[in-house]
């Protein structure tokens, strides 16, 4: 089977632009609303979709995504709903990569093997787990790799040269560069520091590099897209859902469209 993540990056690259990666929390504001939001992301021009698994204690998230987690859990979203959302998405969009993002505890609750098998069956291409660093890889990594689901790791401004190989070992799909030492939300990194970090990461790996955290405007996306292989936008979309609730889909589509247009206008990634 074709690797949907690799194909999506290759496709964007062939068009001379960075890939657009968008994040929303599954089940926000209710599980029934998520399908329309995911479709809006795709229609707006997202190349890869990150679907957040809600958690009661989202320690790495700022207020926007914390609130999204609360909305989702208050609506009664269960792990089974997330897999149902993923399965239905895969039927509607056979080629768009879907990545589950979340925290360790909901992922390992029924055992990593169970989770990996469910993810595979639902057509999930990759998993990002915020609080399983390489040191605890045994908790989830082997199970995902055995099922052929990518474990996508995070590199951060504090990941120095000595540590980078440990992060890359066992990573696949792409490398997610968290551009700020901080939580998701409004804090933004200086473009110069992003340029430098991406160059440093590219010297260490052939994996595509996606940059996220604090990306909000089309201009920022374009600037990051000029050096990185992918740009991740999350909180800004989640805020639109927070504002418009069940009616968010058209607003999400417009906003994602503006990000994609900014990326289209740019030079190919180096």
């Amino acid at each position: 089977m074709k690797d949907r993540i690799a194909s999506a990056f290759a496709h964007a690259r062939a068009e001379g632009r960075a890939a657009l990666i968008t994040f929303v929390t599954g089940g926000d504001p209710t599980p029934a609303d998520t399908a329309a939001v995911l479709d809006a992301l795709v229609e707006g021009g997202a190349d890869l979709i990150e679907l957040g698994m809600p958690f009661t204690d989202p320690m790495a998230d700022g207020s926007a995504i914390q609130l999204a987690n609360l909305r989702s859990l208050s609506a009664g979203t269960k792990t089974a709903d997330i897999f149902a959302i993923a399965t239905a998405f895969r039927t509607r969009h056979p080629n768009v990569p879907l990545i589950l993002m979340g925290y360790a505890n909901p992922m390992i609750r029924r055992g990593a093997e169970w989770f990996a098998a469910q993810a595979k069956a639902a057509g999930v291409d990759g998993v990002i787990c915020v609080d399983i660093p390489p040191e605890e890889d045994a908790e989830l990594g082997p199970a995902l790799r055995a099922c052929g689901v990518h474990l996508i790791r995070l590199a951060t401004p504090t990941t120095d040269v000595a540590r980078l190989p440990a992060v890359l070992e066992g990573s696949s799909g792409f490398l997610y560069y968290v551009s700020v030492a901080g939580i998701t939300g409004k804090q933004q990194a200086a473009q110069a520091s992003i340029d430098e970090a991406v160059a440093h990461l590219k010297s260490g790996t052939g994996l595509p590099i996606a940059v996220g955290f604090g990306v909000r405007t089309p201009e920022q996306a374009a600037a990051i897209g000029s050096v990185a292989d992918g740009v991740v936008v999350g909180s800004a979309i989640v805020e639109i859902i927070g504002q418009h609730g069940a009616q968010a889909a058209p607003h999400v589509k417009d906003y994602v469209g503006s990000l994609r247009a900014a990326l289209n206008a740019k030079e190919p990634a180096r």
Partner: peptide, 11 residues
């Protein structure tokens, strides 16, 4: 163990 975000690992 050490189940933390990558940002905290070096620290």
């Amino acid at each position: 163990g050490r189940y933390v975000a990558e940002t905290l690992m070096p620290l």
